[in-house]
Design a protein around this nucleic acid. Structure first.
Lengths: 202, 202, 202, 202
DNA sequence: AGGTAATCGAGACGGTACGTCCAGTCTTTGT
DNA sequence: ACAAAGACTGGACGTACCGTCTCGATTACCT
């Protein structure tokens, strides 16, 4: 028995409708033109219901964006044994996902929300980088064990360079082409320095 | 002939006062709590004067941040002949500059402004990356000619990886330590891959 | 059943506070220097609440003045059987009431409001003349039946001449003395013409 | 010699253009929606020129309305020897003049201006009633001497009752018909009381 | 004729108020 | 007891004018 309850049950469907309305509003108007009144109306809910679930506009946006409606961290990193190809494919998938116009709008909205609310920033970090970083770290570790990477590679720096570069491109409206992410992958794998002890010809 | 002007000349000093008040408001309240009323009052200007110069909050913030009040792109890249040391020093200076609390607030505000206004985004790109990217490209070219880099290194990807990573750290409130930027420099210079044909000692 | 209503009931106390604040503002600043912001602040209400009740400054002023705060039409006409004395006493009471400085300010404000808003003008008429005119017509009818008046006296013209003269004096800041209203009463009762068939001396 | 003056002469044509523009604005927008900016633009004058001639909106409106653009006081009272017919004809002319739509708008505007500015009220009185009152008093005096009126008729009360009633009708948008002004004339001439000592038929 | 000074149209300035919109809270009625 | 509806206070928005000030360009008088 799921727990005795009095009165009318809190409607999970209302919560979902609110999140979907928020997502649509964000995509259409952006973060700071978003209006709770409009969200509530579009969701067929009362304003109080919105505030019952989420204490503020920032919190609503955070929940909307980060809990599943912008799934940046959910793209799995393949593991075929070839770290170079796996990394390239993952970055391409990441770019393809984030580069779709609707997703780009939402991500820009999320960036704005993160920029002026510390809680949102924290959750943004958790959902976006922490996930990617964890998966990437694991994948790098595997490659390292397979002898494909030098030891002691700074996984955090790699992950944040990749994620940061992609988000930056989105923010400034530069296209997320495969060429660009291929270059990115190349840079973090090979570096730009001439191999310090390249095989000396006899 | 430079064009006959009618009516009272527009007051450059009012414009400056407005930008300075905006800078202070941004640092104190952040982007979306910024109030044009407060800015005008603090600048000793009428609201109409603010709107005469800048048609919207975004444009005001853009002008404020990008025209000299947050000089991200103005840090010169040293050239001692040692690309590794130069890059590290530049990144440390960049991080030190951007990591100061006032600067961090302004940069987050600029990010929010860029996220919800395309013009601001374009100007943000010009002022932040285009400058850094140009300088970085030039420095990499020098190093390449000096035989320190492999040929064909993708300067754009390098620049955006570095700038993107730093801005991302700021956005999610992670500290911009020297350790972190040193790791970044290390990654883009050396890559993380095991040197493909490292000279095997006999 | 009086009609099902959803949502919070509109606050009658807010409405009263707004009207009282308006009355004070009018007396202090006059009609066209009246500020809705000040009214709202003085009433402890949001501006929106003011606009919810009254769509414009004119409407607000009209309601304030005409619904009970300036009760020009509420002075009863006595009926002692002597029309001349009754009319004189009523006009004196009317003049005394309207001539008090606070009342005079409010009436001038109402005049200004009526002058630039047709709705207000209509309500002004209803509240001021229609009431007076009705009462006056009834009283004249009584006197006519008592044989004190000639038949077919134009009650509307009488009422508007009296009210018009009093308001005009107020408008141009001439004092509403008993002498003046006594003259008025005398004029409308006796006329100024020599009695056409005055008792011919033998 | 009228006073030596240096510099450019003040442009009388600008002054006229300003008054005409004011008249048009008043007729179109009424007193308190009148805008000095619009007046200046319509007159092809600078705002400063308006303020050089008239120190305030009230003064401008007063000058405009009262110095010739609303000529209520200029209608002469005929003198055919028949006071009843003369008064009726004058009132009809007065009503016809004031009842035209453009004139009615201006008079309402003048009323509003008088209602919130004491100077305007004073000048309004001078131009409207003082003139009418003077002429009317003179005409009544003539009739009195001709034996048509009883002695000691209060001319001021008569004049203000007539003017007040007409202005009141205008203010509340009731039509100024000949029937109405005929009733007015009848009331002030004959009164409404039964002739006190009507010649009793033997 | 040439300086000097006041006025002209134009329009930006510091302000005040407007009427609208929204955030977040509170209250009423319906389910 | 929760949900919708919607009024509440408070405050920012962007616009419109106010009355003043500052431009460059005209006039007119006065040396």
């Amino acid at each position: 028995m799921p727990e005795a309850r009095r009165g009318r049950a809190r409607s999970e469907s209302a919560r979902r409708a609110i999140l979907e309305a928020t997502r649509d509003e964000l995509a259409q108007h952006g973060y700071d033109k978003l209006s709770i009144d409009r969200v509530a109306a579009a969701a067929g809910a009362g304003k109080q219901t919105v505030y019952r679930w989420y204490p503020s506009k920032s919190a609503l946006v955070a929940e909307c964006i980060l809990d599943g409606y912008v799934a940046l961290g959910n793209i799995p990193i393949p593991d075929t044994g070839n770290i170079r190809r796996d990394l390239r494919d993952w970055l391409r998938a990441f770019a393809d996902h984030a580069g779709r116009p609707e997703a780009a709008s939402l991500i820009r909205a999320a960036t704005a929300a993160a920029a002026d609310n510390d809680d949102v920033a924290a959750r943004f970090y958790e959902r976006v980088t922490a996930a990617s970083e964890g998966a990437l770290t694991a994948r790098l570790r595997t490659a390292e064990h397979a002898g494909q990477l030098r030891t002691g590679a700074p996984a955090t720096a790699v992950a944040q360079a990749l994620v940061g570069a992609v988000l930056y491109r989105l923010l400034v409206h530069q296209p997320l082409t495969h060429d660009f992410v291929d270059d990115l992958a190349d840079v973090v794998l090979s570096g730009v320095e001439r191999a310090p002890a390249a095989a000396p010809p006899p």
